[in-house]
Amino acid sequence: MRTALAPNPAISPATDPAMTTTEPAAASQMPGRATAPAYVSIEGVGKSYGSRHGAVHALAGIDLEVREGEFLSILGPSGCGKSTLLKCIGGLERVTKGSLAVRGQPLSGPPAKAGMVFQRDVLLDWRTILDNVLITAEFLGQSREALKPRALQLLQRFGLSGFENRHPWELSGGMRQRASICRALLCDPELLLMDEPFGALDAMTRDDLNLELARIWQDTRKTVVFVTHGIAEAIFLSDRVVMMDRNPGRIVEVMEIDLPRPRTLAMRETPEFGRYVAHIRHLFAGLGILKEG
């Protein structure tokens, strides 16, 4: 799929025309990535709301920095508030406590240059795949015509060439989710928020999309916050994994994943990968979330 974008020796892979970005890919190899500036700063964030059974604390005492250009996963059981946290970062939900800033600016509403991918693809049935991707341009008030070549390139890169003029219902679940990722990437967001994007897909499609996402991230260095309940998926994709527990939703541990890139599916069988999995599994078992036997 990528070879279709005629490789130009004059430009580095990072300046792949479909994936323009401000940061060179070489940055990933720099050892001091931990010192990258914070893109999102979350301080003492809490979110509560009233319900029939009294106050519910969806989030409590969340302190977290999402570094510029990192791939961060938020992992936890259902009900731990990981999706709520993601929506707060996206300015789609208000926090009731603490402060949240994107690039140093306190958040009031969705941040500029953010894209989001949801668990369900939420493609619009009345639009073709191409028009679904281009809706981001329409919403942002940018020219459809100007972004059409980029949309077509993205679709090609995600293996959707030939499906531009089809409607969503004519595509498989995996293809639909690819199209929704293209839609999120259309206007070259700096921050990509992903809410269990592969949770509804079968295991093989999921592996496939994990690989593609890892590759895209490698090339573009977007700041990604990825919510998942898949342990292997979180380790495979991330620079750091944030583990959360519920009642109230809180962070219990943040773990650096020190596996080389580019990542391959075969890495999941290595002892290092196994140690990360074991560590996370042990942690959740200790919290009473994973029970064996």
Binding site: G90, L92, L124, E138
Partner: peptide, 27 residues
């Protein structure tokens, strides 16, 4: 309307009019 459809529009800072015309009405 699917709440995530509205979230999708909001994350791209769509106007209320654009949401009405491009999502609510066709939906």
């Amino acid at each position: 309307v699917d709440p995530d459809m509205l979230n999708l529009a909001r994350i791209s800072r769509a106007s209320q009019f654009a949401i009405l015309r491009k999502i609510r009405l066709p939906n």
